[in-house]
């Protein structure tokens, strides 16, 4: 449990961090909350030669509204988002998922961007980002680019960030006034990593028609997976019991999870179907906010 030797840099600004990345990028890792990176280094699963600690880059420590978006800087802690009135009011799905992320102690230091960049297919935040169609702001000394979840999450523990880049910000669209959301996961014990989960959001109009149906599954494969067939079913047929059952079945059929020591692939697929059904029923039962 001793990391390999590494050079340590502690820039005071994003600009300085990006210029360090421009030089060391290929052999560097960005340290924000360190809740995944540091254990991986201690276990020598990762041995970066250079660590760029952005904890002094205070300009990245924000959660703020910018028009129709909530922008969260690279130093926005999960615990801060959990306690944020702004998040509670504008991002109900994120707010309901955060208590499932790690444990309170890890959320105190772990960041939203760090968890997203870690790209663990069993983590909660990637599915929340996928369901909310979040935008990922990736910065380098060369400039900035913005991508969506599908481009951002490449495979398990792999994102689309180039060696000289870092995730500077994640932007979530403010939930529509009538949005209903649900976040559900099942684990083999009361806390810690889930076996599978579902993040869901939709809007229901006065006539009972559904719009903006977005369902994302965790534990469904290499990355978080949008359940397009199930989404289309609900948009077409609404939240009838039959449509919900069909959507659950469509979700089960659409995912290709892997087996591990925690669960079989078959169980995971079935569970995602069950959780889609539960999420839709919960949203059907809930009134508009």
């Amino acid at each position: 449990m001793k990391p390999a030797a590494f050079a340590y840099h502690r820039p005071a600004s994003l600009e300085e961090a990006l210029s360090l990345l421009a030089v060391h990028g290929a052999e560097a890792r960005v340290l924000s909350g360190g809740q995944s990176l540091v254990p991986l280094m201690n276990m020598r699963i990762l041995s970066p030669a250079v660590l760029i600690d952005i904890n002094r880059c205070r300009e990245l420590a924000y959660i703020r509204r910018e028009g129709g978006m909530i922008a969260c800087g690279a130093l926005a802690r999960q615990g801060e988002a959990e306690a944020s009135g702004l998040v509670a009011a504008t991002l109900p799905l994120l707010a309901s998922a955060l208590p499932h992320v790690g444990v309170r102690a890890s959320r105190n230091f772990g960041t939203l961007c760090g968890s997203l960049a870690h790209a663990d297919p069993l983590a909660e935040l990637p599915s929340v980002a996928a369901a909310l169609e979040a935008r990922f702001v990736i910065a380098s000394a060369r400039g900035r680019r913005e991508v969506g979840a599908e481009a951002f999450f490449v495979s398990a523990l792999t994102n689309c960030i180039e060696p000289d880049e870092m995730l500077a910000e994640v932007r979530f669209p403010v939930a529509a006034a009538g949005a209903r959301t649900a976040f559900l996961e099942v684990a083999n014990r009361g806390h810690g990593f889930a076996v599978a989960g579902v993040a869901a959001t939709l809007e229901v109009d006065a006539a009972g028609r559904c719009a903006g149906v977005r369902l994302a599954a965790m534990g469904a494969g290499d990355t978080t997976v949008r359940l397009a067939a199930a989404e289309a079913l609900i948009e077409d047929e609404g939240l009838s019991a039959a449509a919900i059952a069909a959507a659950g079945e469509a979700a089960r059929a659409a995912v290709e999870p892997t087996a591990d020591v925690h669960a079989s692939a078959e169980y995971r697929a079935g569970l995602i179907g069950v959780l889609v059904g539960r999420a839709l029923r919960a949203m059907a039962a809930a009134g508009p906010r």
């Binding site: 083999n188 014990r189 009361g190 806390h191 990593f193 591990d260 020591v261 925690h262």
Partner: peptide, 11 residues
């Protein structure tokens, strides 16, 4: 201990 699960206070 990520993969060998022991109960916690939550259980």
């Amino acid at each position: 201990l990520l993969d060998y699960l022991i109960p916690t206070a939550m259980d």
